[in-house]
C-alpha cells in the first residue's frame, strides 16, 4: 500500500531520512547533555588526586568521554613531565 501510494505520488519517501537523521543527532545531543558538568568534575578530582603525588601542569590533564551504543569509554590523558620524581622530592 505504501509503495503503491508512493508510486502514485511520484515522489520518494523522505520520512525514513528524517527518522535516521534524528536518531543519529539525538544520540549525540543526549551524550552531550549534562556532560560538561560531569567531565569538569572528574577532571578536577583526578587532577587533585594525582597532584598529591606528582607535580602536574593542569593544562596537560585531558578527560574525554566517548559514547558508544553498548558501552562508553572514559579516556584520561595525563602528561607527566620528565623527572617528575625529582619534583616530588622537592615538594616533600
Amino acid at each position: 500500500m505504501m509503495n503503491l501510494l508512493r508510486l502514485m505520488s511520484g515522489r520518494t519517501a523522505t520520512a525514513p531520512v528524517a527518522r535516521e537523521r534524528l536518531q543519529i543527532l539525538l544520540a549525540h545531543d543526549r551524550g552531550l547533555r549534562g556532560q560538561p558538568e560531569l567531565l569538569g568534575l572528574l577532571r578536577a578530582e583526578i587532577l587533585a588526586v594525582v597532584s598529591r603525588h606528582v607535580v602536574l601542569d593542569p593544562e596537560k590533564v585531558v578527560v574525554r568521554m566517548e559514547r558508544g551504543k553498548q558501552v562508553s569509554t572514559l579516556e584520561v590523558d595525563i602528561e607527566v613531565p620528565n623527572g617528575f620524581e625529582r619534583s616530588i622530592a622537592a615538594a616533600v
Partner: peptide, 16 residues
C-alpha cells in the same frame, strides 16, 4: 502524508 512516507510517522516519533 505520513502514509506516503512524506512525514514522520507516530511510531517513529514515539520510538525516538
Amino acid at each position: 502524508r505520513a502514509a506516503r512516507g512524506e512525514m514522520l510517522s507516530i511510531e517513529d516519533i514515539l520510538e525516538i
